[in-house]
Design a protein around this nucleic acid. Structure first.
Lengths: 108, 108
DNA sequence: ACAACCTACAACCAAACGGTTGTATGTTGG
DNA sequence: CCAACATACAACCGTTTGGTTGTAGGTTGT
């Protein structure tokens, strides 16, 4: 199933397409935070923030670990890197186009 | 207005969060294509593809130029790069965390 | 001139999204 | 033990998204 990758890309970019989720990701990349601690930072219900955390987790951009009654969220830098590499691949496609144009100019 | 940047990021990631749009972006990064030519590649109506192209254009990932009755779409690699640099900034946040942990281990 | 073509956009619809409140479950400290 | 806390999740609701069809305007070739 090749479009497994496309599913992953959908989840990645969708997760990043919301400013609250990007902000949460910044915080948990900087250090561990409980869901409650994160929720305190935003002007929305706990449940809303918890859902955002769940979206980031399903996308593979964040992991959680239990510590007593708290769930500590931590950013997954490998996830971020793999999104970045998708964009690099897009840039490579573009580079291929430039190479082709160069060949054309040089009359092949 | 600082959240102008956040608006841009919303548009970028949203535009990339759809596999048809990512595929269109790949094609137009590789070379110019008319909207009709793009539409022929997908199992959906012309109007649907035209809307996808419009989303990419609004996000600044694609530009169009008129050529006779055709509208030729071309990928904007600078747009792609600026998305990539947002992710690099996220990675920098993570690096800051690691630096802090290192300081902790070294006892100051 | 005009028929064929390329594009844009409005109106509509089902599904997904981002938020809410309410309920249930597990964990801790006194 | 039990009250307070931390989390998860279901049900609901208005808005946005991704698709459709239909209509209209600009461009081309004959």
């Amino acid at each position: 199933m090749i479009d497994q990758d496309e599913d992953r890309a959908d989840a990645f970019f969708h997760a990043l397409a919301d400013r609250t989720r990007r902000d949460i990701l910044r915080r948990v990349l900087a250090g561990e935070h409980s869901v409650t601690a994160l929720a305190a930072s935003y002007d929305m219900s706990f449940a809303a923030v918890q859902k955002h955390v769940a979206v980031l987790e399903r996308a593979g951009l964040l992991t959680k670990r239990r510590s007593g009654r708290e769930q500590l969220a931590s950013g997954d830098v490998d996830g971020v890197r793999s999104v970045a590499s998708m964009l690099t691949e897009l840039e490579d496609v573009w580079r291929g186009r430039i190479d082709r144009i160069d060949q054309l100019i040089q009359g092949d």
